[in-house]
């Protein structure tokens, strides 16, 4: 039951983009078309889940037993960078259509703070292994949801008459603000 609550709160309440402000760069950069937003969300969810597993193992089996917590930042970022590279090669070999769909978004994920944020938050909150995995999948889905909604709104926005200075980043941020406001409504769901 607690795992279900964690899953739902990772998607709706503690949404990575709208609550933690993580992954803003792809959220603003890759949200002009719904299909590219979907591919980006897919790639992020995929990498997030794997990152959650690997960083948990490193943190709990290598760093914590040896009192090396201060190496968390360095080791997490290196693991994420090499992991993305490996995942990219693996997908290219195993499933070319999937590789086509994720395409250029995979390498971009290395510098996505959402991935690093996930690893750090899971370590900070002392989640168990299962909790970490659930948190990773839920956060990925939450990111996908936010970026697809944003892309849908921005496709409509192209047709509307936006004041000159607000064009581009300005209006995108204000839209994100209104979305965050709407998502605040979910916060009463789980106490």
């Amino acid at each position: 039951m607690e795992l279900v609550a964690l899953f739902i709160s990772a998607i709706l309440i503690n949404n990575f983009v709208l609550h933690y402000f993580l992954g803003i760069c792809p959220f603003l950069g890759v949200s002009k078309k719904i299909d590219s937003a979907f591919s980006m969300g897919l790639a992020v969810t995929f990498v997030m889940t794997i990152t959650a597993v690997i960083t948990w193992v490193i943190n709990h089996w290598i760093l914590l037993p040896n009192n090396l917590e201060y190496l968390q930042i360095v080791s997490f970022i290196l693991v994420i960078a090499s992991l993305v590279q490996l995942v990219e090669m693996f997908i290219r070999k195993v499933s070319p259509p999937l590789y086509q769909a994720m395409g250029i978004y995979l390498p971009l994920i290395t510098t996505n703070c959402a991935i690093m944020g996930l690893a750090l938050l899971a370590a900070l909150k002392n989640y168990s292994f299962v909790e970490t995995v659930v948190f990773g999948v839920g956060s990925g889905i939450g990111f996908t949801l936010a970026i697809i909604l944003m892309a849908g709104i921005r496709e409509q926005l192209d047709l509307s008459d936006v004041p000159e200075p607000l064009k581009g980043a300005g209006i995108a941020l204000i839209v994100a603000g209104i979305m965050a406001l709407a998502f605040l409504g979910f916060s009463g769901m789980i106490k």
Binding site: L18, L166, L173, I174, G177, I178, A180, L184
Partner: peptide, 11 residues
Amino acid sequence: LPPGAFITLGI
């Protein structure tokens, strides 16, 4: 709260 951050920065 988060919405204030987005809207202020946008403006």
